Simulated scan of single mutants.
Amino acid sequence: MNALIIIPARLASVRLPNKPLADINGKAMIVRVMEQAQKANIGRVIVASGDPEISAVIRSVGGEAIDTNPKLPSGSDRVYDALCQLDNHEEYETIINLQGDLPLISPQDILQSLLPLNNPTVDIATLIAPIQSEQEKNASSVVKVACSFYKDSTTLAKALYFSRSPIPWGEGILWHHVGIYAYRKTALKQFITLPASPLEQREKLEQLRALEAGMTIGCATISHAPLGVDTPQDLDNVRTIIKENIKNDIC
């Protein structure tokens, strides 16, 4: 499939102002995310920028940035706006929306996000990883997903519901949703034209808009959820991990 990776980014953040430009061992976070996306070798990688400062940083290292309206309501809207600005946008069948706060995302995991789209009934694909601790289970910042695995598969599932609460109840694995989406282009266009749904507004999770509208979200499993950056403590943790990786010549 002819795929395009778009990373939406803007400076406005309540918990961590100017988050995309946060320095992580000599590189802005958004640059590190872009570099991980490039290593996946899927195709073109674009940063959908909501602020000129982000665009300037990306272009200074040879990356591609497209300026979008900073008032757009969501990352998905920003991704679609950037897509529509491309002269050859009709050539792309699949658009990967990669969150700009995942500097530790594995290129292999990005590739994995495409797998559910091999099923023609899936509109949107995403990633899930097993929850490893009670803290992860109970943190409202960690989005959980209740899913139904396909017959004879332990790696592909259909998402039934997303929540900030631990779901489903009872014994068994709980799944951590990882913030990456692979859209069929028609599904992305449909999604951004839908109004915000009641469950989306209640849980503050835009993927519920798709489920409430009857769209199908397919999930592929990965072994560990990459650490996202939502707080200053997360940023310190990521800096420590990347510093150690550099020391060991991992990245």
Rank of each mutant, 00 (worst) to 15 (best):
L115C: 04
I167N: 05
C84I: 12
E200A: 11
I173Q: 13
S163V: 14
N88C: 08
A82Q: 05
I173P: 05
P120M: 06
N248A: 09
I124V: 14
L205Q: 07
N25M: 08
R184H: 11
P232C: 09
A3I: 03
D230P: 00
S165A: 14
K243Y: 12
R32T: 09
R78W: 00
I6R: 04
P232K: 07
I96Q: 01
I180H: 03
L11K: 07
R59L: 05
Y150N: 08
C251M: 08
S133Y: 06
Q36F: 00
A182M: 04
Y80N: 10
P120N: 10
G63E: 04
N245E: 15
L117T: 05
L188M: 09
D81P: 02
T216M: 08
S148Q: 15
H176L: 05
N97M: 15
W175M: 07
P226L: 03
Q233G: 01
L104I: 09
D87E: 12
M1T: 11
Q108D: 12
Q108E: 14
S74V: 04
N119G: 06
K27Y: 07
G218C: 05
D249T: 11
P107I: 06
I167M: 07
I6G: 02
I96N: 00
N18A: 13
H224N: 12
C84A: 14
D109H: 10
P166W: 12
V47S: 04
V14S: 12
L86D: 02
R44W: 03
P8C: 11
I173H: 11
T216I: 14
I131R: 03
L4I: 08
Q99L: 03
G172R: 12
S76V: 09
S141H: 09
I95A: 03
A48R: 01
I30N: 00
G100E: 02
W175I: 03
V61M: 13
K137A: 06
E171A: 09
T193E: 15
Q190C: 09
K204L: 15
A187G: 08
Y181R: 15
A187H: 02
S113V: 13
K71M: 14
P73A: 10
I192A: 01
I30F: 03
A159V: 05
S74Y: 04
N119Y: 12
A82R: 03
H89Y: 11
G62C: 07
K144R: 15
S60N: 13
L235H: 03
R184A: 06
T68F: 00
K19D: 04
A139D: 11
D152K: 13
G170Q: 10
L102D: 01
T126K: 07
V178L: 03
I242Q: 03
N69E: 15
V14R: 14
R32M: 11
Q112R: 15
S74E: 05
Q207S: 08
K27F: 09
I222D: 02
C147G: 02
D23I: 10
K71I: 09
P52V: 13
K247W: 10
N69L: 14
A56Y: 13
I128L: 12
V79G: 02
T121I: 12
K39W: 00
